[in-house]
């Protein structure tokens, strides 16, 4: 019984960690907008934590470059399983408008595995919330597979 409560709770308490991996700040503002009274993601138990060790979902905005790819990897590694990664915005998905820049590696998935891609430039708050919800589904699926 407790096991099923835990399983149920996973979907009800996704703590997110937001990492700005070199975004133009457009996507970041949209992520933060999700926390405002208008969108109020805390309704779904979502909390924006500042520490990978407390996080379930990693939200990454912006392109990866050669300098911060190690940081991204490190933060991902410090998250305890089960975890999900959501790439936000055109930059996070593919490198976006910066993809040809000399120092850019590309999208997030060049460095860490991504579960959900949220498109847009910037991505809309509704889309981000949607992405998190889809991410939670994936994450439940992953747990099931692991078991």
């Amino acid at each position: 019984m407790f096991g099923s409560f835990i399983k149920k709770s996973r979907a009800k308490s996704p703590w997110i960690m937001h990492f700005d991996c070199g975004s133009c700040n457009g996507c970041d503002i949209e992520v933060l907008a999700c926390l405002t009274p208008l969108y109020d993601v805390e309704r779904f138990g979502i909390i924006n934590v500042g520490n990978p060790k407390h996080a379930d979902v990693l939200l990454v905005t912006g392109t990866v470059n050669h300098r911060n790819k190690k940081v991204l990897k490190n933060i991902y590694d410090q998250m305890p399983e089960p975890k999900a990664v959501i790439a936000i915005g055109a930059c996070g998905n593919t490198g976006g408008v910066f993809r040809d820049a000399y120092n850019v590696v590309g999208g997030i998935d060049k460095v860490i595995p991504v579960d959900v891609y949220v498109p847009g430039c910037p991505a809309k708050p509704e889309a981000i919330i949607d992405g998190v919800v889809v991410g939670l589904g994936k994450f439940a699926q992953k747990v099931e597979e692991a078991e």
């Binding site: 990492f19 190690k70 940081v71 490190n74 410090q78 305890p80």
Partner: peptide
């Protein structure tokens, strides 16, 4: 259990 380094804003 898994031993990890302390959190140092990703730049360990």
């Amino acid at each position: 259990v898994k031993i990890v380094a302390p959190y140092l804003s990703g730049s360990n």
